Computed example of a mutant assay.
Amino acid sequence: MSITYTLALIIASLITLKGVPSLGSSFDDKIYHIVAYLGLAFLWAFYLKPYKTKYVPFGVFFLAAFLGFVLELLQYYVNPNRSYDTYDLIANTIGAIFGTLIAVQLNTDKLK
């Protein structure tokens, strides 16, 4: 599931998306970025939880944020209809933080 989600996120980040539903906010794009990277970090943290090292959450967060950075750069070079946006990168990072924290909290609750 984690690999499939990651591949879908990569593809969705690099193609031109049309007809994305509006949430009725001027921050729709940033909300989508936060949710997408929250899901990415959450899924990977759960996939890697059997390793139970204290460094897994840091690695998950770092790699999710790094993927967001790389995809933002690739949008600029690969698709003329997409562009690099620092605020998207910030939203990606916020999503990665929350996804990692939620997964860590749920994993901690299961150990009790």
Rank of each mutant, 00 (worst) to 15 (best):
T53E: 03
A45G: 07
P21N: 08
D85I: 06
V20H: 08
G95D: 03
I94P: 09
N79D: 10
L106M: 14
L9V: 12
Q105N: 09
D109Y: 13
Y47Q: 06
T100C: 05
A12H: 08
D29V: 11
V20L: 15
P57M: 05
I11P: 00
A12K: 11
E72H: 09
T53V: 08
L89A: 07
Y51S: 02
Y47F: 09
I94W: 03
T4M: 02
T16I: 10
A45P: 02
L89E: 03
V35A: 12
T100D: 12
T93M: 06
Y77E: 07
P50N: 00
L38W: 13
A12E: 11
D88G: 11
Y37G: 06
Y77N: 08
T86G: 09
T4P: 03
A8Q: 07
I90V: 15
S83G: 07
T53H: 06
A91S: 14
Y5M: 02
A64E: 13
I15H: 13
A64T: 15
Y32N: 09
L40P: 08
L9Y: 05
A65C: 02
L43T: 12
S22T: 15
A36K: 00
Y76N: 09
N81R: 02
V20E: 11
Y76V: 07
T100M: 08
A41T: 13
V60K: 01
L73V: 14
L14C: 09
A41C: 10
L111E: 14
V20I: 15
L43K: 05
G39L: 10
A64I: 06
L9N: 02
K30C: 01
T100I: 09
L71M: 15
S25V: 11
I90C: 05
L43V: 04
V35N: 05
L14S: 11
Y37H: 12
Y47P: 00
S83I: 08
T86N: 00
F58P: 00
F27L: 14
G68P: 02
L38A: 15
G39P: 05
L74K: 09
L40D: 01
D29C: 05
T4H: 02
G19Y: 14
P57Q: 03
S2W: 02
Y84V: 02
V78Q: 02
G24H: 12
V104E: 07
L67H: 08
A8P: 00
A8Y: 04
L73W: 04
R82F: 07
L67F: 05
Q75A: 08
L67V: 01
N92E: 09
N81D: 05
I90E: 00
L43Y: 06
L7C: 10
G39W: 02
S22G: 15
T16Q: 14
N79R: 08
F58Y: 14
A36S: 12
K112S: 13
I90S: 02
Q75K: 13
Q105A: 14
N81G: 05
I34E: 00
G95K: 07
Y77K: 11
Y87A: 12
L17F: 03
P80N: 03
F98Q: 07
F27I: 15
G19W: 11
L73M: 07
G59D: 06
W44A: 01
G99Q: 10
Q75S: 09
K49T: 12
R82G: 11
S26D: 13
D109A: 15
T53M: 07
D88S: 05
A96Y: 10
K18N: 11
E72R: 05
